[in-house]
């Protein structure tokens, strides 16, 4: 019998790097120097920061390009980037710079933001903690799922990719320990387009997938 699944949670507070950009050229220069942690923060940790739950683009860079620089082309190019498509954050940084260099070459002027619309680079302090809740079986996890906080879902499903490598998450890894019994569930988890979902939407999606276990158990009893 595999080890029980320990439900963890996390909390973060943003930390300002004290660096801001008024235009795209400044933004590019800062991008070459900021810590890699900051890139991750702007791509994923914004899900845990205060923000309106319905942004047009998921990462901060694309949102700024649209809202402050009024450059929809750049926003779309930045918006489609998924950090986990790259072997590491340094490669992601290079890809970002490439996109910006292309855009600076294409446009005849340097896109500027109005005063008050600058881009502020940040990173964060993240604290991971044990909730004290465990699931002994996938069925138990399915039952507990609605009680999980959004940040717990973030930790096990999104942040896990950073710890374990792309296309992996804590739930799937644990389910694999039960042999091939949950292959269909693991496949469904792998197909979730998490990059386009808010944490509330992601949690709903995962509850739906996990409820398949309960349905299957009912069927097999029937």
């Amino acid at each position: 019998m595999p080890e029980p699944f320990k439900i963890m949670d996390c909390s973060l507070v943003p930390i300002s790097l004290g660096i801001s950009a008024q235009n795209l050229r400044e933004f590019r220069e800062h991008l070459t120097r900021i810590p890699l942690e900051s890139l991750y923060s702007h791509f994923y940790e914004n899900l845990l920061r205060f923000s309106f739950d319905d942004p047009e683009f998921r990462n901060d860079f694309a949102q700024w390009a649209k809202r402050a620089l009024h450059d929809p082309v750049l926003a779309e190019r930045l918006g489609v980037l998924d950090p986990y498509d790259y072997p590491g954050l340094e490669e992601l940084r290079n890809a970002l710079i490439e996109i910006i260099d292309d855009r600076l070459y294409e446009t005849r002027y340097i896109p500027w933001a109005r005063p008050g619309e600058e881009f502020y680079f940040l990173t964060s302090q993240t604290v991971v903690f044990d909730t004290g809740i465990i699931a002994n079986t996938p069925k138990e996890l399915a039952r507990l799922f609605p009680r999980l906080s959004s940040s717990s879902v973030y930790y096990h499903f999104i942040e896990a990719r950073r710890r374990l490598g792309a296309k992996q998450d804590d739930f799937s890894n644990w389910l694999k320990d039960f042999g091939d019994k949950y292959d269909a569930l693991i496949k469904s988890l792998g197909e979730v387009e998490y990059y386009f979902l808010s944490l509330t939407e992601l949690k709903k999606e995962l509850i739906k997938i996990f409820s398949a276990i309960a349905r299957r158990n009912k069927k097999s009893k029937g």
């Binding site: 943003p14 930390i15 302090q125």
Partner: peptide
Amino acid sequence: SFAQPLEQPMYI
């Protein structure tokens, strides 16, 4: 936007 660049961590 309220912060000044400082050496120590600046939490928001």
